[in-house]
């Protein structure tokens, strides 16, 4: 019985394209080759544009990085960390006494290094990752000249979370200046107690 039904299904009328439809579709298929090659050309062109733009962007970045590096040394305002010398601090202190000078660190690990010179108080504001190295060196080399090192714990973000290390006549004392330096603030800097210990032991 299925065989009969199969035959009936097979005998269902077949739809077919009219001559007009056939001609039209065939023409479109053949013309599509042109569009196709045009599209390919466009995509080739687009790819080239992207490549050139990408290369230009990279070259610009390299150039800018190079120029920044050059400017740093030339202007003296921005100094790469590896070329950071204590003389720079002293020079800046002399030149910019009473003013604010920003030294921007080029290395990724230190995104900002600010030196503020204010009369006899010498503030150094550091980001936290390289602070130990730099602070220790500062303390070793210039303890007698440094009155206050302001260490900012960048991750915490408010004044209560600043630690102040005071050096008087070569004697290093860990003190808080700000009245609002709270227990929370102590906690925030507590993780750096090894640093303080090293400074205090100095």
């Amino acid at each position: 019985m299925n065989e009969d039904l199969h035959k009936k299904i097979q005998s269902l009328p077949k739809a077919h394209l009219s001559h007009k439809q056939r001609t039209s579709i065939k023409r479109n298929i053949e013309q599509n080759t042109l569009y196709d090659s045009c599209e390919q050309q466009q995509s080739w062109f687009a790819q080239r544009v992207i490549h050139v733009t990408g290369i230009a962007a990279i070259l610009t970045l390299v150039f800018l990085s190079f120029m920044i590096g050059v400017n740093v040394n030339r202007s003296g305002d921005i100094i790469p960390f590896d070329k950071f010398k204590m003389e720079n601090i002293e020079n800046l202190q002399l030149v910019h006494d009473g003013e604010e000078t920003v030294i921007k660190e080029q290395k990724v690990i230190i995104d900002l290094l600010t030196i503020i010179s204010d009369h006899d108080l010498f503030f150094i504001e550091l980001t936290e990752r390289e602070h130990q190295k730099l602070l220790t060196k500062v303390m070793e080399d210039h303890a007698e000249k440094i009155h206050i090192i302001l260490y900012q714990n960048k991750g915490q973000g408010n004044i209560q979370q600043y630690a102040f290390m005071i050096s008087k006549n070569g004697e290093v004392v860990l003190e808080t200046i700000h009245n609002g330096f709270s227990r929370k603030g102590y906690k925030a800097v507590g993780k750096h107690k090894n640093l303080y210990k090293r400074i205090v032991d100095f």
Partner: peptide
Amino acid sequence: GDDIYNYVVYRVGSMDVDDIVQEVFMKAL
């Protein structure tokens, strides 16, 4: 062409069948 046309007619009905057939061959291309 006719087989594809017939299939599409039975599959989706009689609306815009020739467009679909054309798209099929464009896709094949």
